[in-house]
Nucleic acid binder design. Structure first.
Length: 750
DNA sequence: CGTCGGTGTCATGTC
DNA sequence: CGGACATGACACCGA
């Protein structure tokens, strides 16, 4: 008995603790208010995030286009339009940065040891990690940035490579969901298969050795770039020095390339092209007049004047958002095609670059060129470049810094390169040039986000089945939330209690006539059946009534009348049956009733218990009662009231348990819904990252240096700044900045 | 005979 | 401070 009751009590406590825990971790109200509305908007709104974007086909198109980058008969105009449309399509994803950030968290600290960059930039290495968890170079899965998001997603519980660790049923379920989504996206389940990815990497490696046509963009000759870096004596920042005189050689074609970039990432309405003039850059950096970063605001002639102007800042932020999502990329198919298996050796061979070949710091976008654009397109755009105002929709690309950006500003920009290059490439960079890519997620690591993610993890770990979630979602399509049913809420208790108190306070004006029905034998403990019939007759009925109606004790006021009705229906019974009946009724009597009858209490226990204090005292004063009788009456009253209180207490307890059960159900439903939303977001983020990645690769692949050679993604990367400009800088420099930025961020946190 | 749920009762605390 | 009430603990009872 004792253990049972303890069990009950402890169970209730555990129940409460469980709820409180859930309530703390699933602050549904907060979550829904602060996070979900925009998220839901993405899901339910007109966002294209959940439209099945055929970016695999898109990728094929891009690849096909990239096969012959130097072919002059390619339709650059339509290419630009296509890129522009893609970018705009990205914009239609409408995923605010902050919301995306919520999913871009929980980066493995080890993965950012060497490349932690607080900026939103996200390296492709991270993004590709999930797809390709193996490093083809050594076959060892490094803990570096290469696997960044693979682990992230694993942490999220969204994707767990089957080859890694134990998979719970929930993990498998979730993988199934993601797999189905990837099938929608054209990806096979092998993507989630660790071993298969390994094989795939090997195949890709072989393919890379044979140099696919798609690699032609980076099949340039020797790079004659120097790596002279100027160091800001004040800040210690390093930046590439620009050697005067080598600027404008191929500036035109490079500008075109940047215009392509601009067309790809339209973030400015300013169609001017000051960057065409090399001195402009120098002017932008008065103190570093001789050293200039390759810088260029990328502006789309397609967007100038005739097209709607863009809020530069807003556009850039949108782009940044997309960039951030890039790091979440799971399907890095394009990256694999272009880079996968391309280890450092291959890259070095392609570029005929010794690992330590100095890079000309003069490399700038002005010196770069779109190899395929150099002839036709340069002439096509030349006039426009000279006079930006002429820019029209007929112009394909225009490259120009939209404003004068100082070096500091420029170098405060965010490294784009890391976003777009796969782990293989990154490892190559590490081998050949040393610098490590920054951790683009460093700045995104917010504890609140971590909490959310951990919540998701918890949801998964707790055995949630996403499939069931979907079913639940459909079943409970209505808005979820912790809406407590007021009818079951503790408030109802107060109403019950209020009625109870009102009942007890409702004075009974009944006369004491019923006392006459109670005739006690004067001297015997034995019950005189004849005499007790009247007094006892109602008792079982009352007892039953009281038991069943304690929820509404107000009805108890009618009990005195029941006394009149209930007693002595045995007059026509045979004495024997009468005796049996009396015996039965006697058994139905409570102990207190027996005691009261024994003590010849002249009124009913009901009166004793339910009369208000004043009337009760008045009643007592009307009789000459012995001390024993008074004591018994007070005990009867106390026990009677306590009995009702106990009944109410138990009912409350029961209702509380029921409410808790329902709340748990509500929370589980909410949890299911949130988890389902999470899966949806992962899916859309993958799509967006794929798109951005494709765009970056296409743009970068078209850049040419003064020799008409493509830039090595191993050596250079595109970086974007908050002012909307996009610059091509050596990776080493980008990494340096990233580390510096990370340090600053850390200091700020302290 | 033990278990379990329901109930009554007591002690205690709170309002 | 006394009364009403709430509640944990325990005992009793019947299924």
């Amino acid at each position: 008995m004792l253990s049972l009751k303890k069990y009950f009590t402890e169970g209730l406590i555990q129940f409460t603790i469980l709820l409180s825990l859930i309530g703390v971790r699933v602050d549904v109200d907060t979550y829904l208010n602060s996070q979900l509305p925009p998220l839901r908007e993405i899901i339910l709104g007109q966002s294209s995030a959940y439209t099945q974007t055929q970016f695999h086909n898109l990728r094929n198109t891009l690849d096909g286009y990239g096969i012959h980058p130097k072919s002059v008969d390619l339709d650059y105009y339509f290419t630009a339009r296509r890129l522009l449309n893609q970018v705009r399509a990205l914009d239609r994803f409408q995923v605010p940065t902050t919301e995306v950030n919520a999913w871009l968290v929980h980066r493995d600290p080890e993965g950012s040891v060497s490349s932690a960059q607080p900026s939103p930039a996200i390296t492709l290495e991270n993004s590709s990690g999930l797809q390709d968890g193996t490093n083809p170079d050594n076959g060892v899965r490094e803990s570096g940035p290469e696997q960044g998001f693979g682990e992230e997603l694993e942490d999220l519980g969204a994707v767990a490579p089957p080859g890694n660790g134990d998979l719970t049923k929930e993990d498998i379920d979730l993988i199934d969901i993601l797999w189905r989504q990837d099938i929608d996206l054209g990806a096979g389940r092998e993507i989630f298969d660790y071993s298969h990815r390994q094989k795939e990497s090997e195949v890709d490696k072989e393919r890379s050795d044979g140099r696919e046509p798609g690699d032609s963009w980076r099949s340039g000759g020797n790079e004659t770039l120097d790596r002279n870096l100027l160091v800001d004596g004040e800040t210690g920042e390093s930046f590439p020095a620009q050697v005067p005189g080598v600027v404008d050689q191929t500036a035109l074609s490079l500008e075109e390339c940047l215009r392509l970039l601009e067309a790809t990432f339209p973030f400015g309405e300013n169609s001017e092209f000051p960057a065409a003039d090399a001195s402009h850059l120098n002017e932008a950096v008065p103190t570093e007049s001789e050293s200039s970063v390759i810088q260029s605001g990328l502006l789309s002639p397609l967007l100038t004047e005739t097209e709607s102007p863009f809020d530069l800042e807003q556009q850039w932020q949108d782009l940044m958002s997309i960039m951030e999502m890039q790091a979440m990329e799971v399907n890095n198919t394009t990256a694999e095609i272009l880079y996968n298996g391309t280890n450092g050796d291959l890259l070095t061979a392609n570029y005929s670059l010794a690992p330590n070949t100095p890079i000309n710091q003069n490399v700038s976008l002005h010196q770069a060129s779109l190899g395929s654009c150099t002839q036709d397109l340069s002439s096509l755009f030349s006039s426009e470049i000279e006079s930006p105002s002429v820019a029209s929709s007929s112009a394909l690309l225009q490259l120009a810094p939209d404003n004068s950006t100082g070096l500091n500003t420029t170098f405060g920009s965010t490294n784009l390169s890391g976003i777009f290059f796969p782990p293989q490439l990154n490892s190559t960079v590490n081998e050949t040039t040393g610098p490590e890519l920054p951790d683009p997620l460093g700045g995104l690591l917010d504890e609140a986000m971590l909490d959310e993610i951990s919540l998701m993890d918890l949801a998964i770990e707790e055995g949630f089945n996403p499939v069931q979630a979907s079913q639940l979602e459909e079943e409970f399509d209505s808005d979820s939330g912790l809406s407590l049913d007021s009818s079951h809420s503790p408030v109802s208790f107060s109403s019950s209690e209020a009625s109870s108190s009102s009942s007890s306070s409702s004075s009974s004006s009944s006369s004491f006539s019923e006392e006459g029905a109670v005739g006690y034998s004067s001297d015997s403990e034995n019950v005189d059946f004849e005499e007790t019939e009247g007094a006892v007759g109602y008792q079982p009925e009352y007892s039953k009534f009281c038991r069943m109606s304690y929820q509404d004790p107000s009805e108890l006021r009618y009990l005195p009348y029941l006394e009149h009705v209930g007693h002595n229906h045995t007059y026509n019974m045979a004495p024997e049956s009468k005796e049996k009946q009396s015996d039965f009724l006697d058994k139905q009597m409570s102990r207190d009733e027996h005691r009261a009858r024994a003590m010849k209490i002249p009124f009913t226990n009901d009166k004793i218990i339910n009369l208000p204090v004043e009337e009760f005292n008045e009643l007592l004063s009307k009789y000459q009662l012995s001390e024993a009788q008074l004591s018994l009456i007070r005990d009867i009253r106390r026990r009677g009231k306590n009995k009702m209180a106990a009944q109410n207490c138990r009912k409350r307890k029961l209702d509380t348990i029921l409410n808790l059960e329902r709340d748990v159900g509500d929370l589980q439903r909410d949890k299911s819904k949130l988890l389902r939303e999470k899966v949806e977001f992962l899916k859309s983020i993958r799509q967006m990252k794929q798109k951005v990645q494709n765009l970056y690769q296409e743009v970068f692949g078209r850049l040419r240096d003064e020799n008409g050679q493509p830039y090595s993604p191993n050596q250079y990367s595109l970086q974007y700044a908050s002012d909307g400009s996009v610059i091509l800088i050596p990776r080493a420099l980008a990494d340096q900045q990233a580390r510096r930025k990370e340090r600053k961020q850390k200091d700020r946190r302290k």
